[in-house]
Design a protein around this nucleic acid. Structure first.
Length: 464
RNA sequence: GGCCCGUUCGUCUAGCGGUUAGGACUCCGGCCUCUCACGCCGGCAACAGGGGUUCGAGUCCCCUACGGGUCACCA
């Protein structure tokens, strides 16, 4: 069985880079009927934040990812880690190091001055001398001092390191007794039964250290997949300004979660030429082995395009429900579907959608001056007045856009008018702007009484 | 700086030794049209550079350049 996990440190909100690796892990587990676990890496008590863990859960909920089992908090497993520290101590695979922080800093400074790689010199590795009693010791693991550490990464292929290039006896427990990251990650991944670790590229160089821990503890090493970073549009590190903000900000900006997910899965992964993936398709088609090797740049325009696509194809119920988050309630509007259909092809976000809907539903407070100047001619008022008189006495019920199209054509035929004589003046008087959905749709949505009222108001205000 | 990873249109990518190097976003034309969008049709645009290997290289190997990651008692 495949088991994957998402293991963020709770230092802030969940951003799209994290969401993407979470998505990949989720998909791979679910696709294989496996398990997807969530673990909060809060070993550093100084940098803990409960809100952050909650924020991750909220974001998961919004996009529809679910995890199995209870969330694992590393801060609650210190006793467990201590046992493993002790085990290594007992087996002489780890040892106490009494070097003070100052001494260590000094050593590092010297090494750097000599242009050497900063590393612990192993002075307490097999120390038999006097133990300084004024220093609380850290625990260091005995890492191999030579040889090759290699593994086959599911994305990068074979990766190998020389022990002497990268390793030293790194700290597994701090002076205050708390364990460190590379130690607990390996333990938890092993204990939680991880078969496939899918995580950010930035962990690639941690992997050999973790392998040292796996081996020392006799754990089975999982398969690793190191997914490349997401860069900003200029190819630099992604910042908030570029889109690395809280995933929940995307909700506020009017994005549908399926658009975000579709965007993210396609950033660094592909299935031939396919661009649109339903959740079901993601599940059936995703495979980490065709994740790209190289970093990809964030492209907000493509996200927008995808969002527009999902808005176009969303159900009435769905859009009506989502729109409520944007101060627009059309639940009980009798022309709900006509309104939605009139706008769904034009809105790239739900924010735009709501704004455009309000522009139709709300009586215009003003009229675009340029539009008035350009389209309202000498005879426009007269035409508009004739128009409302004409529709008021209609014998047929006027309800659908097609009803209005028909009667409008009859009207134009009777007075020998062209659409361009009528459409823009009508539009301006109804919504205050030269831009809107089809006038037939607008007419239908408003209904005869409102049409009459708005036209009269318009003429009245313009004549002042 | 050491180590590791990477490099196909501006961007996301397809390609897994033989292709007029394909698709998508953006942009630019055109069509549709009551405006704006949508949609449809068309267009611009790429194998980082240099050496090999091979009958043949975007695809395999090496070097260079450039980019990124990492070198903590952070995760």
């Amino acid at each position: 069985m495949i088991t994957t996990r998402f293991a963020p440190s709770p230092t802030g909100y969940l951003h799209i880079g994290g969401l993407r690796t979470a998505l990949y892990s989720y998909l791979w587990a679910r696709k294989n009927s496996g398990r997807f676990l969530l673990r909060i890496e809060d070993t550093d008590l100084k940098r803990n934040s409960k809100e952050a863990a909650q924020a991750i859960e909220d974001a998961f909920k919004w996009v529809g990812l679910s995890h199995d089992d209870e969330i694992v908090y590393q801060s609650q497993r210190f006793d467990l880690y201590k046992k493993y520290v002790q085990k290594l101590l007992d087996e002489d695979k780890a040892y106490y190091c009494y070097m003070s922080k100052d001494e260590l800093d000094e050593l590092r400074a010297q090494q750097q001055a000599r242009k050497e790689r900063p590393r612990y010199d192993g002075r307490y590795r097999d120390y038999k001398g006097e133990i300084p009693n004024d220093v609380k010791p850290v625990v260091r693991i005995k890492a191999p001092q030579s040889g090759t550490i290699s593994f086959v990464d599911g994305i990068k292929g074979e990766v190998s390191f020389q022990a002497e290039d990268i390793l030293d006896d790194f700290i597994i427990a701090r002076a205050d007794g708390t364990p460190t990251y590379n130690f607990v990650v390996a333990i938890d991944d092993a204990l939680m039964g991880m078969t496939d670790v899918i995580r950010g590229d930035d962990h690639l160089s941690n992997t050999p250290k973790q392998i040292v821990v796996y081996k020392a503890l006799g754990f089975e090493i999982p398969k690793f997949y190191h997914v490349p970073m997401i860069l900003n549009p200029n190819g630099k590190k992604l910042s908030k300004r570029d889109g690395a903000m809280d995933v929940m900000e995307y909700q506020k900006m009017g994005y549908l979660p399926e658009a975000l997910l579709n965007f993210l899965i396609r950033l660094g992964w592909s299935h031939g030429d396919q661009e649109i993936f339903s959740f079901q398709e993601m599940l059936s088609l995703f495979d980490p082995s065709n994740i790209n090797k190289s970093a990809s740049a964030y492209n907000g325009e493509k996200l927008l395009w995808l969002n527009a696509h999902y808005i176009k194809n969303a159900s009435y119920e769905r859009l009506t429900k989502e729109l409520k988050h944007f101060d627009l309630d059309i639940e009980d509007h009798d022309k709900q579907e006509i309104l939605v259909d009139a706008l769904r092809d034009r809105a790239k976000t739900l924010v735009e959608f709501a704004d455009m809907a309000k522009a139709i539903l709300d009586t215009p407070e003003s009229y675009d001056e340029k539009a008035v100047k350009k389209f309202i001619k000498e005879d426009s008022f007269e035409i508009l007045l004739k128009y409302i008189a004409f529709i008021k006495v209609s014998e047929k019920p006027l309800r659908l856009p097609s009803d209005f199209e028909q009667i409008t054509k009859e009207f134009m035929a009777k007075y020998n008018l062209k659409m361009k004589n009528l459409a823009q003046p009508l539009r301006i008087s109804l919504v205050g702007s030269a831009v809107s959905p089809s006038v037939y749709d607008v007419l239908s949505i408003l209904g005869v009484d409102e049409i009459v009222a708005r036209i009269e108001t318009f003429i009245h205000k313009q004549k002042d």
